[in-house]
């Protein structure tokens, strides 16, 4: 039997290939935009800090503009990877090469979701590091250092709590996305394989559309039910704001678990690997 770790590492490696590709394209595009900006812009680059304007070194300015470009393009790049990783997930779910690996369907699915999510974060880290590193030379400028020194950040315990909560919420919502995409794919595939008539493209398409609409409708109702039940149940006795926050996190957690269980059931009982 193949261990979960082995499978997870392998899937991560496989998926990180597209992360690197997207990151390189993004960096190249940002570089092009920066160059275009410098060529079409006139005069020496200037930075405005309050009333002071100060000329800075061309290379430092160039890198700073590049960092900004990376930040802007990261929204597009992240969105593209969001879509690519979802497609890749569903391809793996139906690939015989992958499905022949001796692991349980539960481990298989969790590894697939987990690696999609982790590679997504990996892309975010790559972008963040690039932006920070290209901004570092700015510290050589005294005014910049002064500005940073003045901006004092005070984080209270509550702020930390809120940040942690938001992080959890983001993770659960992100996971929910992959789980729902799989639900749509696996459920429609199960139904297509069950119904007579089989593999005509038009037929498959019609069924997929119907199933997707039906599932979204059901999900809408399920969410209302889950959330209204959990809404009455408040395990965290702090103050009212915290309760709302904690409950929302709990609601998404339950939602994720339920969808994952359905996905596992579909993968285990109905959805075959594609014949090759």
């Amino acid at each position: 039997m193949t261990s979960f770790n082995t499978l997870f590492n392998r899937m991560f490696q496989e998926k990180s290939k597209s992360v690197y590709l997207i990151f390189l394209i993004q960096a190249f595009a940002s570089l092009c935009f920066t160059i275009i900006g410098f060529v079409s812009g006139n005069g020496t680059p200037e930075f405005v800090n309050g009333k002071d304007t100060s000329s800075v070194n061309v290379i430092v300015a160039f890198l700073a503009v590049f960092a900004v470009m990376m930040l802007i393009t990261s929204f597009i790049a992240d969105f593209v990877y969001w879509i690519i990783s979802s497609i890749k997930n569903e391809k793996i779910n139906r690939s015989q090469t992958w499905r022949l690996i001796p692991v349980t369907d539960t481990k298989f699915l969790l590894s697939n979701f987990g690696t999609a999510f982790l590679t997504y974060i990996w892309l975010g880290i790559l972008e963040a590091v690039t932006i920070i590193v290209t901004l570092l030379p700015m510290l050589s400028d005294q005014d910049v250092r002064k500005a940073i020194g003045q901006a004092s950040i005070h984080l209270s315990a509550r702020d930390w709590q809120t940040m942690l909560g938001s992080l959890l919420l983001i993770i659960f919502i992100g996971y929910a996305w992959y789980a729902i995409v799989s639900l749509l794919n696996l459920a429609s595939r199960s139904i297509i394989d069950f119904l007579p008539g089989g593999s005509s493209k038009v037929w498959t398409f019609i069924i997929r559309v119907i199933v997707i609409i039906a599932i979204i409708w059901i999900l809408g109702h399920a969410v209302t039910i889950i959330f209204s039940v959990l809404g009455k149940f408040s395990p965290f006795m702090v103050n009212s704001q915290d309760i709302n926050y904690a409950t929302t996190i709990l609601q998404f957690l339950v939602f994720d678990v339920v969808i994952t269980l359905i996905d596992i059931l579909l993968l285990n009982k109905f959805v075959e690997a594609k014949q090759n």
Partner: peptide, 29 residues
């Protein structure tokens, strides 16, 4: 890798799919 069949498969005592997969080697495209 094909699902939703009736009946039982046993390879040297392994009946679960994951265990079977560990005991056999199938030509994959």
């Amino acid at each position: 890798v094909a699902k939703n069949y009736k009946g039982e498969i046993n390879i040297e005592g392994a009946t679960k799919e994951a265990e079977r997969k560990a005991k056999l080697s199938f030509t994959d495209g």
